[in-house]
Protein backbone atom coordinates (compact mmCIF):
# COMPACT_ATOMS: atom_id res chain seq x y z
CA UNK A 1 0.00 0.00 0.00
CA UNK A 2 1.32 3.47 -0.77
CA UNK A 3 2.44 5.29 2.37
CA UNK A 4 1.80 8.80 1.01
CA UNK A 5 -1.95 9.45 1.33
CA UNK A 6 -1.78 11.60 -1.79
CA UNK A 7 -0.57 8.61 -3.80
CA UNK A 8 -3.46 6.59 -2.45
CA UNK A 9 -5.84 9.39 -3.40
CA UNK A 10 -4.31 9.65 -6.86
CA UNK A 11 -4.46 5.93 -7.55
CA UNK A 12 -8.06 5.87 -6.41
CA UNK A 13 -8.81 8.70 -8.81
CA UNK A 14 -7.36 6.87 -11.79
CA UNK A 15 -8.74 3.46 -10.83
CA UNK A 16 -11.43 3.54 -13.52
CA UNK A 17 -9.06 4.49 -16.37
CA UNK A 18 -6.63 1.80 -15.14
CA UNK A 19 -9.46 -0.75 -15.23
CA UNK A 20 -10.38 0.28 -18.77
CA UNK A 21 -6.80 -0.06 -19.93
CA UNK A 22 -6.31 -3.39 -18.17
CA UNK A 23 -9.56 -4.70 -19.58
CA UNK A 24 -8.38 -3.88 -23.10
CA UNK A 25 -5.04 -5.58 -22.49
CA UNK A 26 -6.66 -8.68 -20.96
CA UNK A 27 -9.03 -8.96 -23.93
CA UNK A 28 -6.05 -8.87 -26.28
CA UNK A 29 -4.21 -11.43 -24.15
CA UNK A 30 -7.15 -13.79 -24.51
CA UNK A 31 -7.30 -13.25 -28.26
CA UNK A 32 -3.61 -13.99 -28.61
CA UNK A 33 -3.92 -16.99 -26.31
CA UNK A 34 -6.61 -18.30 -28.65
CA UNK A 35 -4.41 -17.71 -31.67
CA UNK A 36 -1.49 -19.51 -30.11
CA UNK A 37 -3.67 -22.35 -28.89
CA UNK A 38 -4.77 -22.97 -32.43
CA UNK A 39 -1.37 -22.54 -34.10
CA UNK A 40 1.30 -23.57 -31.60
CA UNK A 41 1.07 -27.21 -30.70
CA UNK A 42 0.90 -29.85 -33.41
CA UNK A 43 -1.29 -32.02 -31.17
CA UNK A 44 -3.61 -29.14 -30.44
CA UNK A 45 -3.89 -28.10 -34.04
CA UNK A 46 -5.74 -31.30 -34.85
CA UNK A 47 -9.12 -32.52 -33.68
CA UNK A 48 -9.06 -30.67 -30.36
CA UNK A 49 -8.58 -27.35 -32.01
CA UNK A 50 -11.22 -28.01 -34.64
CA UNK A 51 -13.62 -29.06 -31.90
CA UNK A 52 -12.92 -25.89 -29.97
CA UNK A 53 -13.48 -23.71 -33.00
CA UNK A 54 -16.74 -25.41 -33.91
CA UNK A 55 -18.17 -25.14 -30.39
CA UNK A 56 -20.35 -27.47 -28.36
CA UNK A 57 -23.18 -27.62 -30.89
CA UNK A 58 -20.93 -29.63 -33.20
CA UNK A 59 -20.12 -32.23 -30.54
CA UNK A 60 -21.25 -35.66 -31.73
CA UNK A 61 -22.54 -34.18 -34.97
CA UNK A 62 -19.37 -33.27 -36.82
CA UNK A 63 -16.37 -35.49 -37.39
CA UNK A 64 -13.57 -33.18 -36.33
CA UNK A 65 -10.82 -35.01 -38.15
CA UNK A 66 -12.69 -34.72 -41.44
CA UNK A 67 -13.60 -31.12 -40.82
CA UNK A 68 -10.00 -30.27 -39.97
CA UNK A 69 -8.90 -31.30 -43.43
CA UNK A 70 -11.08 -28.55 -44.86
CA UNK A 71 -9.53 -25.73 -42.88
CA UNK A 72 -7.44 -23.98 -45.44
CA UNK A 73 -5.07 -22.06 -43.20
CA UNK A 74 -1.45 -22.50 -44.10
CA UNK A 75 0.66 -23.81 -41.21
CA UNK A 76 2.30 -21.01 -39.28
CA UNK A 77 5.99 -20.56 -39.86
CA UNK A 78 8.08 -20.77 -36.67
CA UNK A 79 9.37 -17.21 -36.98
CA UNK A 80 5.86 -15.81 -37.05
CA UNK A 81 4.90 -17.91 -34.05
CA UNK A 82 7.94 -16.67 -32.15
CA UNK A 83 6.87 -13.08 -32.72
CA UNK A 84 3.38 -13.79 -31.52
CA UNK A 85 4.68 -15.64 -28.48
CA UNK A 86 6.87 -12.70 -27.58
CA UNK A 87 3.95 -10.35 -28.05
CA UNK A 88 1.91 -12.62 -25.81
CA UNK A 89 4.58 -12.48 -23.09
CA UNK A 90 4.68 -8.69 -23.22
CA UNK A 91 0.92 -8.43 -23.01
CA UNK A 92 0.78 -10.85 -20.10
CA UNK A 93 3.38 -8.87 -18.17
CA UNK A 94 1.42 -5.69 -18.72
CA UNK A 95 -1.87 -7.37 -17.83
CA UNK A 96 -0.38 -8.75 -14.63
CA UNK A 97 1.42 -5.53 -13.72
CA UNK A 98 0.46 -3.93 -10.41
CA UNK A 99 -0.23 -0.26 -9.83
CA UNK A 100 3.50 0.56 -9.90
CA UNK A 101 3.14 0.30 -13.66
CA UNK A 102 1.05 3.44 -13.56
CA UNK A 103 3.33 5.43 -11.20
CA UNK A 104 6.47 7.42 -11.91
CA UNK A 105 8.72 9.34 -9.57
CA UNK A 106 10.73 12.02 -11.35
CA UNK A 107 14.14 12.53 -9.79
CA UNK A 108 14.87 16.08 -8.66
CA UNK A 109 16.24 18.12 -11.53
CA UNK A 110 15.14 15.57 -14.17
CA UNK A 111 12.82 16.43 -17.06
CA UNK A 112 9.15 15.60 -16.53
CA UNK A 113 8.58 15.17 -20.26
CA UNK A 114 11.36 12.63 -20.60
CA UNK A 115 10.08 10.56 -17.69
CA UNK A 116 6.53 10.50 -19.04
CA UNK A 117 7.69 9.77 -22.56
CA UNK A 118 9.82 6.85 -21.36
CA UNK A 119 7.03 5.24 -19.35
CA UNK A 120 4.45 5.69 -22.11
CA UNK A 121 6.88 4.20 -24.61
CA UNK A 122 7.33 1.17 -22.36
CA UNK A 123 3.62 0.76 -22.05
CA UNK A 124 3.39 1.33 -25.78
CA UNK A 125 5.04 -2.07 -26.15
CA UNK A 126 1.62 -3.42 -25.22
CA UNK A 127 0.12 -1.68 -28.23
CA UNK A 128 3.00 -2.89 -30.38
CA UNK A 129 2.34 -6.40 -29.15
CA UNK A 130 -1.36 -6.04 -29.90
CA UNK A 131 -0.48 -4.86 -33.41
CA UNK A 132 1.74 -7.88 -33.94
CA UNK A 133 -0.99 -10.20 -32.71
CA UNK A 134 -3.53 -8.47 -34.92
CA UNK A 135 -1.27 -8.80 -37.95
CA UNK A 136 -0.70 -12.47 -37.17
CA UNK A 137 -4.39 -13.30 -36.89
CA UNK A 138 -5.07 -11.33 -40.06
CA UNK A 139 -2.29 -13.19 -41.83
CA UNK A 140 -0.28 -10.07 -42.59
CA UNK A 141 2.65 -10.55 -40.19
CA UNK A 142 5.41 -11.18 -42.64
CA UNK A 143 8.31 -8.82 -42.25
CA UNK A 144 10.32 -7.24 -39.46
CA UNK A 145 12.13 -8.89 -36.60
CA UNK A 146 10.44 -9.41 -33.27
CA UNK A 147 12.83 -6.92 -31.69
CA UNK A 148 11.90 -4.21 -34.18
CA UNK A 149 8.19 -4.86 -33.93
CA UNK A 150 8.04 -5.22 -30.18
CA UNK A 151 10.45 -2.53 -29.04
CA UNK A 152 9.20 0.30 -26.78
CA UNK A 153 6.88 2.43 -28.88
CA UNK A 154 7.07 6.18 -28.39
CA UNK A 155 3.82 8.05 -27.87
CA UNK A 156 4.26 9.85 -31.16
CA UNK A 157 3.81 6.50 -32.92
CA UNK A 158 0.60 5.61 -31.16
CA UNK A 159 -2.49 5.57 -33.35
CA UNK A 160 -5.60 7.57 -32.52
CA UNK A 161 -7.29 4.42 -31.25
CA UNK A 162 -4.29 3.59 -29.06
CA UNK A 163 -4.23 7.13 -27.68
CA UNK A 164 -7.88 6.70 -26.74
CA UNK A 165 -6.89 3.61 -24.74
CA UNK A 166 -3.85 5.26 -23.16
CA UNK A 167 -3.01 4.13 -19.62
CA UNK A 168 -3.25 6.81 -16.93
CA UNK A 169 -0.09 7.90 -15.11
CA UNK A 170 0.49 9.18 -11.60
CA UNK A 171 3.68 11.24 -11.55
CA UNK A 172 5.42 12.40 -8.38
CA UNK A 173 7.81 15.32 -8.86
CA UNK A 174 9.31 18.44 -7.33
CA UNK A 175 7.42 21.64 -8.00
CA UNK A 176 10.57 23.15 -9.44
CA UNK A 177 10.57 20.48 -12.15
CA UNK A 178 6.99 21.05 -13.22
CA UNK A 179 7.16 22.61 -16.68
CA UNK A 180 3.79 22.42 -18.38
CA UNK A 181 5.40 22.54 -21.81
CA UNK A 182 6.82 19.10 -21.13
CA UNK A 183 3.32 17.65 -21.21
CA UNK A 184 1.89 19.38 -24.26
CA UNK A 185 2.72 16.60 -26.68
CA UNK A 186 0.89 14.02 -24.56
CA UNK A 187 -2.39 15.92 -24.33
CA UNK A 188 -4.28 13.85 -26.87
CA UNK A 189 -6.64 10.89 -27.05
CA UNK A 190 -7.68 9.88 -23.58
CA UNK A 191 -4.36 10.43 -21.82
CA UNK A 192 -4.71 11.09 -18.09
CA UNK A 193 -1.75 12.41 -16.14
CA UNK A 194 -2.05 13.16 -12.46
CA UNK A 195 0.89 15.03 -10.89
CA UNK A 196 1.78 14.90 -7.21
CA UNK A 197 3.78 18.06 -6.63
CA UNK A 198 6.27 18.15 -3.78
CA UNK A 199 7.80 21.33 -2.39
CA UNK A 200 7.32 24.77 -3.77
CA UNK A 201 5.73 25.29 -7.16
CA UNK A 202 4.73 28.22 -9.31
CA UNK A 203 1.16 29.48 -8.64
CA UNK A 204 -0.48 28.22 -11.84
CA UNK A 205 1.88 25.72 -13.43
CA UNK A 206 -0.82 23.96 -15.46
CA UNK A 207 -2.47 27.11 -16.84
CA UNK A 208 -0.46 26.94 -20.08
CA UNK A 209 -2.05 23.56 -20.84
CA UNK A 210 -5.56 24.96 -21.10
CA UNK A 211 -7.00 24.26 -24.54
CA UNK A 212 -10.65 23.78 -25.52
CA UNK A 213 -10.54 19.98 -25.28
CA UNK A 214 -8.15 19.43 -22.39
CA UNK A 215 -9.36 18.94 -18.85
CA UNK A 216 -6.95 20.77 -16.52
CA UNK A 217 -7.14 20.64 -12.76
CA UNK A 218 -5.06 22.13 -9.97
CA UNK A 219 -6.28 21.04 -6.59
CA UNK A 220 -5.14 20.40 -3.06
CA UNK A 221 -7.48 17.54 -2.30
CA UNK A 222 -9.89 15.25 -4.15
CA UNK A 223 -11.92 18.15 -5.55
CA UNK A 224 -12.51 17.60 -9.27
CA UNK A 225 -10.67 14.29 -9.43
CA UNK A 226 -13.86 12.41 -10.26
CA UNK A 227 -14.51 14.67 -13.25
CA UNK A 228 -10.85 14.37 -14.23
CA UNK A 229 -11.16 10.58 -14.41
CA UNK A 230 -14.48 10.64 -16.26
CA UNK A 231 -13.50 13.23 -18.86
CA UNK A 232 -13.65 11.85 -22.39
CA UNK A 233 -10.43 13.31 -23.71
CA UNK A 234 -6.98 14.34 -22.53
CA UNK A 235 -6.74 15.42 -18.91
CA UNK A 236 -4.03 16.63 -16.60
CA UNK A 237 -4.31 17.27 -12.89
CA UNK A 238 -1.93 18.31 -10.17
CA UNK A 239 -2.15 18.03 -6.42
CA UNK A 240 -0.37 21.32 -5.69
CA UNK A 241 0.95 23.01 -2.52
CA UNK A 242 -1.42 25.22 -0.52
CA UNK A 243 -0.09 28.51 -1.86
CA UNK A 244 -0.77 27.61 -5.49
CA UNK A 245 -3.97 28.44 -7.36
CA UNK A 246 -6.74 25.88 -7.45
CA UNK A 247 -8.94 25.71 -10.50
CA UNK A 248 -10.76 23.40 -12.89
CA UNK A 249 -10.90 23.81 -16.63
CA UNK A 250 -13.62 21.42 -17.76
CA UNK A 251 -14.31 21.33 -21.52
CA UNK A 252 -17.74 19.84 -20.84
CA UNK A 253 -18.94 23.04 -19.19
CA UNK A 254 -19.40 25.16 -22.28
CA UNK A 255 -18.02 26.67 -25.43
CA UNK A 256 -16.74 29.86 -23.78
CA UNK A 257 -13.42 29.81 -22.04
CA UNK A 258 -14.75 31.65 -19.00
CA UNK A 259 -17.59 29.13 -18.66
CA UNK A 260 -15.16 26.26 -18.61
CA UNK A 261 -12.84 27.68 -15.96
CA UNK A 262 -13.73 27.68 -12.30
CA UNK A 263 -11.09 29.29 -10.08
CA UNK A 264 -11.89 28.45 -6.52
CA UNK A 265 -8.72 29.60 -4.89
CA UNK A 266 -6.33 32.33 -5.98
CA UNK A 267 -3.06 32.78 -4.06
CA UNK A 268 -3.23 35.65 -1.58
CA UNK A 269 0.49 36.34 -1.70
CA UNK A 270 2.33 37.24 -4.84
CA UNK A 271 5.33 35.16 -5.87
CA UNK A 272 8.50 36.46 -4.25
CA UNK A 273 11.25 34.26 -5.57
CA UNK A 274 12.04 32.28 -8.63
CA UNK A 275 11.03 28.60 -8.82
CA UNK A 276 12.65 26.10 -11.17
CA UNK A 277 14.20 28.79 -13.29
CA UNK A 278 10.99 30.78 -13.65
CA UNK A 279 11.34 34.36 -12.43
CA UNK A 280 8.87 36.18 -10.21
CA UNK A 281 7.66 38.13 -13.22
CA UNK A 282 7.03 34.96 -15.21
CA UNK A 283 5.10 33.47 -12.32
CA UNK A 284 2.96 36.60 -12.01
CA UNK A 285 2.13 36.49 -15.70
CA UNK A 286 1.21 32.82 -15.42
CA UNK A 287 -1.23 33.66 -12.66
CA UNK A 288 -2.61 36.76 -14.45
CA UNK A 289 -3.17 34.65 -17.52
CA UNK A 290 -5.20 32.16 -15.53
CA UNK A 291 -7.27 34.88 -13.84
CA UNK A 292 -7.92 36.59 -17.17
CA UNK A 293 -9.06 33.38 -18.77
CA UNK A 294 -11.50 32.79 -15.96
CA UNK A 295 -13.26 36.14 -16.34
CA UNK A 296 -16.32 36.69 -18.49
CA UNK A 297 -15.88 39.42 -21.18
CA UNK A 298 -17.75 42.16 -19.27
CA UNK A 299 -15.51 41.78 -16.27
CA UNK A 300 -12.50 41.44 -18.46
CA UNK A 301 -13.38 44.58 -20.40
CA UNK A 302 -14.03 46.48 -17.22
CA UNK A 303 -10.68 45.53 -15.84
CA UNK A 304 -9.11 46.53 -19.11
CA UNK A 305 -10.78 49.94 -18.83
CA UNK A 306 -9.54 50.35 -15.26
CA UNK A 307 -5.99 49.76 -16.31
CA UNK A 308 -5.78 52.48 -18.97
CA UNK A 309 -2.05 52.23 -19.72
CA UNK A 310 -2.44 48.57 -20.62
CA UNK A 311 -5.24 49.31 -23.11
CA UNK A 312 -2.92 51.57 -24.94
CA UNK A 313 -0.72 48.66 -25.74
CA UNK A 314 -1.33 47.15 -29.14
CA UNK A 315 -3.64 44.11 -28.97
CA UNK A 316 -1.67 40.92 -29.04
CA UNK A 317 -4.42 38.25 -29.05
CA UNK A 318 -6.57 37.07 -31.89
CA UNK A 319 -8.50 39.87 -33.57
CA UNK A 320 -11.89 38.36 -32.83
CA UNK A 321 -11.05 38.21 -29.14
CA UNK A 322 -10.14 41.89 -29.12
CA UNK A 323 -13.35 42.74 -30.95
CA UNK A 324 -15.33 40.80 -28.38
CA UNK A 325 -13.60 42.64 -25.59
CA UNK A 326 -14.23 45.97 -27.17
CA UNK A 327 -17.89 45.18 -27.69
CA UNK A 328 -18.17 44.09 -24.10
CA UNK A 329 -16.48 47.27 -22.91
CA UNK A 330 -18.83 49.45 -24.96
CA UNK A 331 -21.77 47.58 -23.53
CA UNK A 332 -20.49 48.12 -20.01
CA UNK A 333 -20.25 51.88 -20.66
CA UNK A 334 -23.86 52.16 -21.83
CA UNK A 335 -26.46 53.21 -19.29
CA UNK A 336 -29.08 50.47 -19.62
CA UNK A 337 -31.05 51.33 -16.53
CA UNK A 338 -33.36 53.83 -18.25
CA UNK A 339 -34.22 51.67 -21.19
CA UNK A 340 -37.77 50.30 -21.41
Amino acid sequence: MPSDPRIELALRAVAAPIDRYRSAVVTTVEEVRGYLASHRSPTESGDGNTAARLGAFAAGRIDYARFATLLTEAPDDPERLRKVEKAFDILRVIAAGDEDLFKIKVKGGARLGAAVAKRLAEMGRGFAAARVAGMATAGSLNSGSAEELLAPMAFERWSAAERRLAPPLVVELEGADLHAGDLVEFMDGNVKILLLVNGESTPAPLAPLITPGTFVLQTGDDTGLGRFAEHEGPAVAALVPEDAARFIHDPARGANLWDRIEIYHAPEKEPRRSVGGRSVSQQKQELQQLLAMGKAPVEAAASVADAAPVTAVAPSGPVSNQVDKLAAWLLSQADLENIG
Binding site: G34, Y35, S38, G55, S140
Partner: peptide, 16 residues
Protein backbone atom coordinates in the same frame (compact mmCIF):
# COMPACT_ATOMS: atom_id res chain seq x y z
CA UNK B 1 -22.94 -21.69 -18.16
CA UNK B 2 -20.95 -22.00 -21.39
CA UNK B 3 -17.18 -22.11 -21.08
CA UNK B 4 -16.08 -19.47 -23.52
CA UNK B 5 -13.20 -20.24 -25.86
CA UNK B 6 -11.27 -17.38 -27.50
CA UNK B 7 -10.95 -19.50 -30.62
CA UNK B 8 -14.65 -18.92 -31.26
CA UNK B 9 -13.74 -15.31 -31.94
CA UNK B 10 -10.81 -15.88 -34.23
CA UNK B 11 -10.36 -13.21 -36.89
CA UNK B 12 -12.52 -14.13 -39.88
CA UNK B 13 -10.11 -13.38 -42.68
CA UNK B 14 -6.47 -13.60 -43.55
CA UNK B 15 -5.14 -10.41 -45.07
CA UNK B 16 -2.07 -12.07 -46.52
Amino acid sequence: RPELDPRWQQAPVSLS
